[in-house]
Design a protein around this nucleic acid. Structure first.
Lengths: 139, 139
DNA sequence: TTCCTTGCAAATCGTTTGCATAATG
DNA sequence: CATTATGCAAACGATTTGCAAGGAA
């Protein structure tokens, strides 16, 4: 399993991630950590994020929009992807893993888990009268 | 929106997709359609799959494993990704969009929908006696 | 004739990796 | 000293796109 050695870079990454609640992407993490650790490389950021995620110390989110996001909050909770600004926010919702049983009912195999995320509009985008979001999400 | 014109390639793609129940990837669709349409290009396959999906004639699935899959069956239903063979199969399960209401309850924004998929082991992989799955999931 | 489509290839984009060197235990 | 971690840049894999030529209405 290769004993893990301590590294200044990994610490910076995890430390930074713990200060954020907005599920930043690897690139955003890279840009920010870079301010205190000017020599860190994107590869190192990716390597450590992957390592931490596999170790279960952080979680990796895939909201189907092409980028992976990371979350230092590993407690079970759900997320919502704002279709207007692209941000990902936490969603307070009781765990409904009970669907697994229902899913297993008519399934001739083994259902181990599920992935669920919501999409819609975040608080800010709902509140603010859309000024000119014409170029907000044209794709 | 640009009036859509008929195209032999698009027909082949949709026709082929309708014969499959295994949610093929763009590349698999390309390889197969190519047998009857030797000159079709991967770009055309992607362009049409995207066009058909946006038109709501087929659906595009993202199971978080890096590849998009396509399904000609647009009736609402769930999917399961087999962690052993990587296949995606349909899952008979009553729609539980009711979670949307629960999700909206404590959310200060708008919840428009949700994406859910299951992971586990498909029928075949569950049945077949695992020969040597020692190296099945090391990481 | 208009303009949607296609084939081809080059371009994107996010993420991973090989390698020689630096840092850690 | 034995290893793991890093920086850099090249490599990747899936998907998109620019462009000139082809096909449908």
């Amino acid at each position: 399993m290769a004993a893990r050695k301590h590294s200044r870079q990994r610490d910076s990454i995890k430390e930074f991630l713990m200060t954020r609640k907005d599920h930043p992407t690897a690139d955003i993490i890279y840009t920010n950590v870079r301010q205190r650790n000017p020599n860190i490389s994107l590869g190192t950021v990716y390597r450590n994020l992957t390592l931490l995620a596999k170790a279960g110390e952080i979680s990796r989110l895939n909201m189907g929009d092409g980028v992976d996001r990371f979350d230092a909050d590993i407690s079970p909770h759900y997320h919502l992807l704002c279709e207007k600004c692209g941000s990902v926010v936490d969603l307070e919702l009781e765990d409904f893993s009970s669907v697994l049983e229902k899913a297993a009912a008519h399934f001739d195999g083994h259902v181990a888990g599920h992935v669920t995320y919501f999409y819609g509009t975040c608080r800010r985008c709902t509140k603010s009268v859309p000024p000119d979001m014409s170029e907000t999400s044209d794709t």
